[in-house]
Design a protein around this nucleic acid. Structure first.
Lengths: 166, 166
DNA sequence: GAATCTGATTGTATTACGCAAGCAGTTTTC
DNA sequence: GAAAACTGCTTGCGTAATACAATCAGATTC
């Protein structure tokens, strides 16, 4: 039935799903970049994932329950990927991982502004963000205020400010 | 100088260091299991890491600045591995990853009791734990109360209770 | 009806992982 | 004081994951 697990430790089981160099990148792009289709994930990612790896990860993440795949009504060939509650629940993981990366690694200013806002916003902001993701991906009622729009605006403002200087 | 990074995103840079199936396992065992020597990490891990992988990960983690390696005065051949501040700062990452794993994955009760306590303890407990790790690994002043002992006791009590029933 | 867009798949090369065995120096045991 | 056990690894080898480039068939657009 089940493939054998290395152990029943929560950290280990989490690593068995997310412990590679691409899974969290795909989820990050869906979550913060609102990418929902294969081609968007393939072409608009900063890191340049290969198409076979992306196909494999999408399949895996659907299998494991972090994503769902449905047909896109607007285009018979389009597949629409959505975050499940299990995927949405990774928001705090991204928040603290981003905070750690920002503190210790050579991040660029543009690509870490959203992590900074999310870190400063704290659990309350994370919860709002999760509710917004439930709205977008699961059809749940929207939150009082859009976190995603705020993150995106901060990023775009910073990019604009930088390119104005340069 | 620097190996090229895929991008300057904090999540990506974090994954470039920790995005594999073993790095966080090694750090977990050092942090929560107080393993400081090669053989301890090799033999006492639940998951059974291979010796060449362990050697590689220790080297990598020292290179990246999460660990330090020093000679053990008690034994001329022993190497003592210690967490750096960069490694200790992963406590919140373990806490939220553990919480996620506990919520969605088939964890065992014994191996998740510590994750549960850490989750319920919240950021205040994480900070105490980090101070305790600074004391153990960096020689900093100890915290008011030992978190590690509490986690370990809860684990052992649970194991004892389970084996008494069985 | 040609070009483009869709989610992929295929082929090939390189790198990482997993397993078992071995190794030289150090310490312990008797 | 010699044998056994322990130390942090290394080596060899087979398998799996990853990376890169090219390709594909059906759907849509122009």
């Amino acid at each position: 039935m089940n493939e054998a697990h290395r152990s029943g430790c929560p950290i280990n089981l989490t690593l068995e799903i997310l412990g590679d160099r691409w899974s969290l990148i795909v989820l990050r792009d869906m979550m913060f970049g609102n990418r929902r289709h294969f081609r968007e994930l393939l072409l608009k990612s900063e890191e340049g994932i290969a198409s076979n790896i992306l196909a494999d990860r999408l399949k895996r993440l659907v299998d494991k329950g972090l994503l769902t795949r449905t047909a896109d009504p607007s285009h018979k060939q389009k597949a629409l990927y959505s975050l499940s509650e299990m995927g949405i629940a990774l928001v705090p993981v991204f928040a603290v991982m981003g905070a750690w990366g920002r503190k210790f690694l050579p991040v660029t200013e543009e690509l870490s502004i959203r992590a900074e806002l999310l870190e400063n916003g704290g659990p309350r902001m994370w919860e709002d963000f999760m509710q917004e993701l439930r709205n977008i991906h699961l059809g749940a009622p929207p939150p009082a205020q859009s976190v995603l729009a705020g993150l995106q605006k901060a990023y775009e403002d910073l990019v604009a400010a930088k390119s104005a200087v340069a």
